[in-house]
Amino acid sequence: MSRPPGRGGPVQLAGVGTALPGEPVDNARLSARLGIAPEWVETFIGTRTRHFARDLDGGPVRWTLEDLCADAADRALADAGADADDVAFVVLATATPDALMPTTAALVADRLGIDDVPVYQLQSGCSGAVQALALASSLLADAERGARPVALVIGGDVCSKHLDLRQDFRSMPPSQLVNYVLFGDGAGAVALSRAPGAARAVLTRADHRIGGLGRAPGQRVEWFGPADRDSGRPAVTEDYKAVETQVPVMAREVFDTLLDRLGWPAETLGHVLPPQLGGRMTERITRGLRQGLEWEEVSCVADTGNNGNALVFFQLERLLPRLAAGGRAVGMAIESSKWIKAGFAVEATR
Rank of each mutant, 00 (worst) to 15 (best):
G17H: 08
G146C: 05
D74M: 07
A80R: 01
M101Y: 14
F89R: 02
T18N: 12
C126V: 10
W40C: 00
A95W: 12
S127A: 15
V153R: 03
L92T: 04
Y120P: 04
D110Y: 08
G15W: 05
P149V: 04
P60W: 05
R29G: 00
G22D: 09
D115L: 07
P118N: 05
Q121A: 06
R145D: 15
C126P: 10
A84L: 02
A99C: 10
A72P: 14
D26T: 11
G81C: 03
S137L: 01
L100K: 07
T49N: 06
V130Y: 03
D115G: 09
T103M: 13
A147Y: 07
D79N: 04
C126N: 03
L112M: 10
T18V: 15
D115P: 06
E39G: 08
V119M: 01
P60S: 04
G59S: 08
A76C: 00
R33M: 10
A70Y: 11
D85T: 15
T96V: 10
A141W: 08
D83T: 05
A82F: 09
L135S: 03
D98C: 01
P24L: 09
L112C: 07
R145M: 11
T49R: 10
S124N: 14
F44N: 12
L135P: 00
L34T: 12
L133R: 00
G22A: 08
M101T: 15
L92V: 03
Q123W: 14
Q123I: 13
L140N: 01
S137N: 09
G125Y: 05
T18W: 13
G128H: 09
D74N: 12
R50N: 12
P97R: 10
L152P: 05
R33E: 08
A132I: 01
A95Q: 14
L100H: 13
P97L: 02
A84K: 02
D116T: 11
D116M: 04
R29P: 05
R29N: 02
T103Y: 13
V153G: 04
D86K: 03
E66T: 15
G59N: 08
L107H: 13
L140D: 03
L20I: 11
A105H: 04
F44V: 14
Q123E: 13
G15F: 04
T96R: 06
V91P: 00
L20R: 13
A99D: 14
V25D: 09
R111F: 09
G17I: 08
P60L: 00
D86S: 08
P60G: 02
V16R: 01
L133F: 04
G113F: 09
G22F: 12
L20H: 09
A109N: 07
E66N: 13
G81Q: 02
A132E: 02
